[in-house]
Design a binder for these strands. Structure first.
Ligand SMILES: [Mn+2]
Ligand SMILES: [Mn+2]
Ligand SMILES: [Zn+2]
Ligand SMILES: [Zn+2]
Lengths: 140, 140
DNA sequence: ACAAAATCAATAATAATTATCCTTTTTATT
DNA sequence: AATAAAAAGGATAATTATTATTGATTTTGT
């Protein structure tokens, strides 16, 4: 079965759980995210998808990114200043964030930081995020 | 010596290092931040300072918060969605972030997470940011 | 006291995101 | 397959948070 068919099947299944349905635009957005190594902004996703689907609008990309986040197919990294970034991964993982060029990359380590952390009693932690700040290989 | 005089002396010293100077507005902004437990937005700082200094403008508050960040007197928490928040503390520390009401609180633990972390070789880490996500005592 | 530099307040502009409104597509029902 | 209802798309307006601009005012160094 072709790659794109696999994606369509996955999306249809997950979207239906939230009452959403499968559209070509959603497939295109998800497909693009699953092909890139970096963590693009909505604008970057829009420009890339637009090349194959010239009529798509920026608002649709925003709405679809949000829909994909809602049903757990992608995740949103709304950390620092500027535009939010989107990530094909939804598992717990950490990022490096270059303070010069802004690039965000996955850190592939498996340490579970919550394990060794003394969490305040009156707070119910459902997750956490860790970002390593500094300079990437190009910028140091 | 009065509290406000201590603040003025500290601000004057630090601001001069960056070629900035001491103004009543900067003192008021810093003074407010040093009195609150939470991490207010620029808007919240503006509204609070405005009560004692009715002519101050929102743009001035933004510029002064930025100036105070520049000379290391306060820090800025840009957690993504919504407005940035400002913090009187400048030392490395962690926060809890309530996903319901948005409140951000200090976590007073001393664990150094970087110590046990396997950092990628091609990245020069200068710092990191950890945020615990979940529900605060009021929202759980 | 005086000129230069810095900062002020007010407002305009920008960037990112969300809402609106009407049209088109998809899905469910006959 | 025809049809009605629901969801989503596209274009654009509106909103939110922040930054830039501008001319007036204050502060600083001499
Ligand atoms: Mn990632
Ligand atoms: Mn803090
Ligand atoms: Zn870089
Ligand atoms: Zn809360």
């Amino acid at each position: 079965m072709k790659r794109i068919e696999v994606i369509k099947r996955l999306l249809k299944e997950k979207l239906e759980l939230k009452g959403g349905n499968l559209t070509e635009q959603r497939v295109a957005v998800f497909d693009y995210l699953s092909q890139v190594e970096n963590h693009p902004t909505a604008e970057e996703v829009f420009l890339a998808v637009k090349r194959k689907m010239p009529k798509i609008s920026l608002a649709t990309v925003y709405k679809n990114l949000e829909a994909l986040v809602e049903c757990g197919l992608i995740s949103k990294l709304a950390h620092g200043d500027g535009a939010a970034r989107y990530d094909i991964r939804t598992d717990q993982h950490y990022h490096t964030h270059c303070l010069k060029c802004g690039k965000i990359l996955d850190m592939d380590i498996e340490d579970d930081l919550l394990a060794g952390l003394s969490i305040p009693e009156d707070f119910v932690a459902t997750g956490y995020r860790l970002e390593l700040l500094g300079h990437c290989s190009n910028c140091k």
